[in-house]
Computed example of a mutant assay.
Amino acid sequence: MSPDQPAWTVIQTRMDGTVNFYRPWTQYKVGFGSVTGEHWLGEKWNHKNRDSMRGHNGMKFSTFDKDQDTWPDNCASTFMGGFWYYTCHSANPNGVYRWGKESTPYAVGVIWHSWKNTYDFSVKSMVMKSHVSHVRSGAQVVLASLLFTVGGDSMSYHNGMKFSTFDKDQDTASHNCASSSMGGFWYNHCHHANPNGVYRWGQEKTPNGVGVSWNSWKTHNYSVKSMVMKVRPVQPE
């Protein structure tokens, strides 16, 4: 990995079947397992990368000549950017580019507060994309349409789906996909990938499609030996 690229965050690992992934919503929310073995990271990956946007929800876009924030002064003028400011920001993507530690003037850089837990560090690069939200009740997630040189793309089918568990059915099928597929995932109707299914390495037929499967590689009836899911901030092209 290039030193200029952000590090990957591993959000899930399957490797030996020592951890049960057929769990309720609350356990997927907080995470389970150990990062040294099989695990699901839970909301920690969302908080790390996205919490800085929460306060800006529902705000109007402001610039130095059009003040629409909720602060008595003009946030865009004070923090030298244009954004959906409130009073004033926990993210300043359109601030002054001044990569690295800063102190004066305060918080005018390209800030992402929840990453460095500070307003005086300006990030090196940032890309904003729409349609990404928290894995929570009523929320949707957009999964990347990854290109796999061997395994193929089994993720596009799940784009825009809500996360489902056996006790929280949010898929598009008439039945509960998490229950029938024995996992927790962004099921559609039902899946092309089942990373959190039952660990049963090798060919399977009965019950159908409940293993750790990747349909575009080995079909629904083959449970893979290992799988890792990772996320990282998008890099500019």
Rank of each mutant, 00 (worst) to 15 (best):
Y106L: 08
A173T: 01
H220M: 06
Y157I: 07
Y222A: 06
T118D: 15
H56C: 11
H131D: 14
C190H: 06
K29V: 09
T13G: 02
S103L: 07
E38T: 04
C177Q: 01
Y97V: 13
K168E: 10
W84Q: 03
S164W: 01
S125E: 15
F64A: 15
S164R: 05
T172H: 04
S179H: 12
H39P: 01
A107M: 09
W99Y: 15
G197A: 07
G58C: 12
A7I: 04
H47D: 11
W99I: 11
V228M: 11
W112M: 12
N159V: 13
W84C: 04
K116I: 10
V108L: 02
K230L: 02
W45D: 04
I111L: 01
Y157V: 12
K29T: 10
M59C: 10
T13K: 10
M15D: 05
V212K: 10
N57L: 15
T18H: 06
Q170I: 03
R23F: 03
N57D: 10
V198F: 06
H39T: 13
Y157W: 13
M15N: 08
H47M: 04
V35Y: 02
V132A: 01
C88S: 12
R23M: 06
M155Q: 03
L146M: 14
D4T: 13
V19Q: 15
S62W: 02
V210I: 15
F32Y: 12
V141K: 13
G81S: 00
F32L: 07
V210W: 00
G33P: 03
W186Q: 00
N196S: 15
F121P: 06
V96C: 03
Y85A: 00
G33Y: 06
V135F: 05
T206M: 04
K225E: 07
G58W: 06
F163Q: 11
T63F: 02
A91Q: 13
F185Q: 09
Q12W: 01
D4Y: 13
